[in-house]
Write a protein that binds this DNA or RNA. Structure first.
Length: 424
DNA sequence: TCTGGGGTCCTAGGACCC
DNA sequence: TCTGGGGTCCTAGGACCC
């Protein structure tokens, strides 16, 4: 029985979601912007064909986008998360084991049929996802995760392959691996790519075959493992049950710089409220908390400060976390600084069913239960009637620094008022 | 004018202990 | 006057991912 590892992902996921749910966008060039309408983070195939680069700041690309009639959308993470869940549940039913790796990617393990050929299965899966969700996917197959990643890139890059590439059934793999630039290898970031290039290593095949000692000396065990993966030894197991998060953060850039302590306090309070909701959804409490703020890294005189505190008793109670976080704000604030971004980190997270009592601060169990019921009620109300139905005074009312999302599409799958209406 | 957000893993080095 | 070595734990920072 021969096993194969697959990497399955949606092409241009955010842009494809927008196109799938708005028929008017199909076949048209579409780009999706990051939060605050900052950068281009997704491009439809049509937009890519027009030469629009990934990661370009919107304000720089704006003229070109208008000239080329490109549809521009603000990112709508509630919609993408919902589409992702639907995609993953379909994939789970069509594979033996599945690791959800990111919002639009999953690794799968499969058994090869007697002739070793999985192309029939792959073609069926692509058609199935297209039919049910309107999303195009690409499938890469190999012996390890590292190989599956490379195969997936080839599946997308070679039009003849129709979204499928199998490194075990492609004739001469070395020839294909040489077409993958070193920068495009999974696990090789900017720094390592530069280092590889300076040593004459410029593609995936050369990385696979370079002297192990040299690579290990530079990139440690991570680099060594990566090379083993490319050679076809599966070193990275499939991770079927996601480990509980070790930390969780909420951070945002402001729509325009802020300069007052009050504004920073409101922003931090807003992010603490969001982070506490996240903790409760994850069934976790935090034992430590950090807040930070910074000016724009693109302006001279970069300023960045952080302040941390530990909690006597780990908590996910919004009130308790606000009480811990807000006194830290004056420590990171400086007047006359054009603050561009702030965030909160929740660290040393614990499971809620792992109860820990503090020796010096014995808590009243009845009071604690009352607070927990209050938090649950607030979460239920905000989920049912929309975020902000129950708000915290510390967050301020409709603050001016709130992020910009001027070009939101419809949230058909998550907001009732946006569900398309079909005229009979 | 305007440049995203949320994570993980690994390593080096300091603090501390015996 | 002489001032070791080995271990663990923690933290900060680097690098990478999508």
């Amino acid at each position: 029985m021969v096993q194969a590892t697959a990497l399955i992902d949606a092409n241009n996921f955010y842009a494809s979601c927008e196109q799938s749910l708005d028929p008017a966008l199909q076949g048209k060039p579409v780009v999706v912007l990051s939060n605050n309408d900052g950068c281009i983070v997704a491009r439809s195939a049509e937009a890519r064909a027009l030469g629009i680069a990934m990661g370009t700041p919107f304000f720089q690309a704006r003229k070109d986008l208008e000239r080329l009639n490109v549809v521009v959308r603000s990112s709508n993470y509630a919609l993408y998360a919902d589409m992702s869940q639907r995609l993953m549940s379909l994939l789970e039913r069509q594979t033996e084991e599945l690791e959800i790796y990111s919002i639009d990617e999953a690794f799968a393990r499969l058994t090869r049929p007697a002739d070793g050929d999985l192309s029939h299965w792959a073609r069926h899966l692509r058609a199935h996802i297209k039919h049910n969700l309107g999303l195009p996917i690409a499938i890469g197959l190999g012996k390890s995760k590292g190989q599956a990643k490379l195969a997936n890139r080839l599946a997308k890059g070679i039009p003849d392959h129709a979204g499928l590439f199998d490194l075990e059934h492609c004739g001469d793999p070395d020839r294909w691996l040489e077409t993958i630039a070193i920068e495009d290898v999974w696990g090789i970031g900017r720094r390592l790519a530069h280092w590889c290039r300076s040593r004459g290593i410029s593609n995936a095949r050369e990385l696979r075959d370079m002297p192990t000692g040299t690579l290990k000396a530079k990139a440690g065990i991570v680099g060594w493992r990566l090379q083993r993966e490319l050679q076809g030894h599966a070193c990275l197991p499939l991770d079927l049950a996601p480990a509980p998060k070790q930390e969780t953060c909420v951070s945002r850039s402001f729509s325009h710089p802020i300069t007052t302590l009050e504004a920073l306090q409101e922003a931090i309070a807003t992010y603490v409220v969001r982070a506490a909701e996240k903790l409760r959804r994850q069934q976790q409490r935090t034992a430590a908390l950090t807040i930070y703020t910074r000016t724009s890294p693109f302006s001279p005189g970069f300023y960045s400060r952080a302040a941390s505190t530990r909690l006597d008793l780990p908590s996910n109670d919004t009130g308790a976390l606000l009480e811990a976080a807000l006194p830290l704000v004056p420590r990171i604030f400086q007047p006359h600084r054009q603050l561009a971004k702030a965030g909160v980190l929740m660290q040393h997270l614990q499971d809620t069913n792992h109860l820990q009592h503090h020796l010096l601060a014995p808590c009243d169990p009845e009071e604690q239960q009352r607070r927990e019921r209050l938090m649950t009620t607030i979460d239920v109300l905000n989920r049912r009637y929309g975020n902000g139905t129950v708000a915290w005074a510390a967050c301020g009312l409709s603050p001016s620094w709130m992020m910009r999302r001027d070009r939101l599409g419809r949230a058909c799958t998550t907001r009732l008022s946006d569900v398309p209406v079909v005229q009979a």
